[in-house]
Design a protein around this nucleic acid. Structure first.
Length: 471
RNA sequence: GUCCCCAUCGUCUAGUCUGGUCCAGGACACUGGCCUUUCACGCCGGCAACACCGGUUCAAAUCCGGUUGGGGACGCCA
């Protein structure tokens, strides 16, 4: 079936944002194409004019770009390819494989209801099938599909599946407004774009025999099909908006790294032994439809978070610093000193799971007038620590080596002189410098902040304590 | 209702095709400990699953049948 170059495609309909499930489908198609030096095509399925929107299209393209799923061709827009579909429909009409039908949507709806109430499958009853009707206003074109026999699907992940043709009805190919329906457009596009592999969600399994019937009526050869299992929410129902964040862009905005999402998505339904962490090159090399499972799976947001933490830890400081900028900006830190951002990132890398968390954790480095966390204020900025802080400040004033090593040296001497442990001074100092009881290592913080700010912040803390004393 | 698909720890999964090496392995989460200036990181340990019933076989998570459970599809939506 498949000779030569592999051609895959991702065909979202622009009726909403790109969600996790769609992104995974796109990823699998992309990986298969990359792995085989093939082509990955992006096609926007916007035949439903009422529900499609430009915003959705943009959001989808933005999501794909952010994930790094670049396409070799397209985006093609189905709304601009009408002549192609018409040509296919004409072929079907002239070979007697399709016919005009004048049943109205209302009549059809009624028929469906009747069938359902009798416990039958609601399908078209063939009223116009043998009438030899011509094209008239309001008529649609239907496929004249076989009444008997079976249609077989050899699925690359599901195996062989067969359907009785009497389960399938004469589906509409062309609407009364002249536009092609989904099935017609998909088949016509996949043929004309030379698609060799159709990787899509499980929910299309039942559509596939209908599409196969169109290929057969057209005497065209079939692509290879691979239906990947659906992604479920925690309640085991198909993942949807009500399960919380499902859009790719939402994860970007929450501070996830694109590769963390890619890695998480790749492992949802696919596996490679016990390996959990994959570089992009490894995914391209190791991905295989054979290792795609058959069962639907629940999207595990916690695992994605863990993966994100992992990749943040591993990321280059400079690229992280750059990625952090929009998040700092959102928190009111405009045009920060790049040098300072990089240093801050270095201290926060191992303790943050998202960029958003990192930006929040970095705030104290940039704020001129930061406030004290209530708990830390009460516990550590009190008279009992006044002498300690004052003495420490005097020593720091004389000290020039603000490297971590140098500071440690000073502290050892200080602790020795005061006969205290580091914890005793570290916590009050931490609150004085960061406003919080939890922060990066105290020497790191001092080093990044620099002598001037450190002295200033200790001064402020001392004043703050004294104010309490006076009250 | 009809048709299609699926079924291993709470979750993602390895193992199933080619039965024995699996009293079922890894990861996340949870949890005990170590490390430690806080928070983390890291390291060591623990908890935890073959849906059920029947068959085939010397032997079944693996093969077969049924049951139950879950998901999906039945549009002039995609």
């Amino acid at each position: 079936m498949t000779q030569g170059k592999i051609v895959t495609r991702f065909p979202p309909s622009p009726t909403g944002y790109l969600h996790i499930g769609g992104a995974r489908t796109a990823l699998f198609n992309w990986l298969l194409a990359k792995q085989n030096g093939g082509k990955f095509i992006l096609r926007i399925e916007d035949t439903d004019k009422a529900r499609s929107s430009e915003e959705a299209t943009q959001a989808i393209l933005e999501s794909m770009e952010w994930l790094g799923l670049d396409w070799d061709e397209g985006p093609y827009f189905q709304s601009r390819r009408t002549p192609i579909y018409d040509a296919f429909i004409d072929r079907l009409l002239s070979s007697g494989k399709a016919y005009y039908c004048q049943c109205t949507p209302e009549e059809l709806e009624k028929k469906r209801e009747v069938a359902k109430s009798r416990g039958l499958k609601p399908k078209y009853d063939g009223t116009c099938r043998e009438l030899g009707l011509g094209p008239e206003a309001g008529s649609v074109v239907r496929l004249k599909s076989p009444l008997t026999g079976k249609t077989h699907l050899k699925d690359l992940v599901k195996g062989s599946i067969s359907f009785n043709n009497d389960e399938l009805d004469d589906l509409i190919l062309k609407r009364s407004d002249g536009s092609p329906t989904y099935h017609m457009a998909v088949v016509a596009d996949d043929i004309s774009l030379g698609i060799t592999h159709v990787i899509r969600g499980d929910d299309h399994v039942n559509n596939t025999p209908r599409q196969i019937l169109i290929y057969q009526a057209l005497s065209e050869s079939l692509p290879d099909y691979a239906h990947v299992p659906l992604i479920l929410g925690p309640d085991k129902a198909r993942l949807s908006k009500r399960h919380g964040a499902t859009s790719v862009l939402a994860y970007r905005d929450m501070g996830y790294l694109p590769h963390a999402l890619i890695n998480a998505l790749s492992r949802l339904g696919w596996s490679y032994g016990d390996q959990e962490i994959f570089t992009l090159d490894e995914l391209i090399e190791k991905f295989s439809l054979e290792n795609v499972g058959k069962a639907a799976g629940v999207f595990n947001a916690e695992k994605l978070l863990d993966l994100n933490a992992h990749y943040i830890k591993e990321a280059e400081t400079l690229s992280l610093a750059k990625a952090l900028l929009p998040f700092l900006d959102r928190l009111g830190i405009k045009d920060p000193d790049p040098n300072l951002v990089a240093k801050a990132v270095d201290t926060l890398k191992i303790r943050c799971k998202t960029l958003l968390e990192m930006a929040e954790g970095a705030l104290f480095y940039f704020q001129e007038d930061m406030s004290y966390e209530q708990k830390g204020d009460q516990k550590f900025l009190k008279p009992a620590f006044l002498d300690l802080l004052e003495d420490l400040r005097r020593r720091l004033e004389q000290w020039t080596d603000f490297t971590e090593k140098g500071l440690e040296e000073l502290f050892i001497a200080f602790m020795d002189a005061k006969q205290i442990k580091l914890g005793k001074i570290a916590q009050p100092l931490r609150v004085a410098l960061t406003g919080k009881t939890a922060s990066p290592g105290i020497f790191e913080v001092m080093n990044v902040l620099g002598k001037e700010k450190v002295l200033e912040r200790i001064r402020k803390a001392i004043d703050h304590i004294q104010k309490k004393v006076n009250e």
